[in-house]
Design a protein around this nucleic acid. Structure first.
Lengths: 112, 112
DNA sequence: ACTCTATACTATGTTTGGCTATGTGTCAAT
DNA sequence: ATTGACACATAGCCAAACATAGTATAGAGT
């Protein structure tokens, strides 16, 4: 997946993953990779700071858990986070619709 | 339209507009606003530097014209630019498909 | 005359946010 | 012992959209 495409859309992805249930960071990365069919293979340096940011903004809560000697910080959506997910879904739809309106106006090289 | 959503997708928009024919900067902004149904109302400080960047990259060529005392720099797609448009269209489709795969997995608040 | 708006381009600086790179530590398998 | 998967953290980089301001012409309104 090309570089900075998901700029501004990462939060939506993370919120969407967490809407299906609480997960810890590493599992979120995994799930993102699986669901997107390998398209989104995000580095930890991208995801962890984003999770911190979302928690700081009140969209996520988190708690430490210990599983077989490994500490995990498990995140879950707050009420506010669920609201933000809805808003961002709408924003994403608006965005893609606007994009297609612009793109459909343009001629394809090989379309009559 | 929320702020930095089109980060990384602006080039595609500009190339798409210019695929329908040469235009000058201001007209591109207009066309973008119209086609997107007011969703993309981009400031000049966003579009002009992007056009310069695209020209520098060899995707656009430009020439000065004088229309009723107003100078205009008219841009047109180069062959390379047309190629880039194709690639970026594919990348955009891949991106949106990956997004929907992730998003469709998540539960809507009010869907059974 | 004067002002305002629309047209049209340029330059400078700021900021956002994803990414690189690096570091910590555990556990299982080789 | 060492590698690799698991799991988290953070300092710093950098592209790119945006804010802001400046220049200049034309036409409409007052």
């Amino acid at each position: 997946m090309r570089g900075q495409a998901l700029k501004g859309h990462l939060d939506l992805l993370l919120l969407a993953i967490l809407a299906d249930g609480a997960r810890h960071g590493y599992a979120i990365i995994d799930e993102l990779r699986k669901r997107s069919d390998e398209a989104f293979d995000l580095p930890e340096g991208t995801v962890y700071p984003a999770l911190h940011r979302l928690q700081k903004g009140g969209f996520l809560s988190s708690e430490w858990t210990e599983v077989q000697g490994r500490r995990r910080r498990t995140y879950r959506l707050t009420e506010q986070g669920r609201g933000a997910l809805g808003e961002q879904r709408v924003a994403w739809n608006d965005f893609t619709e606007a994009m297609s309106r612009v793109l459909k106006g343009a001629a394809w090289p090989d379309t009559p």
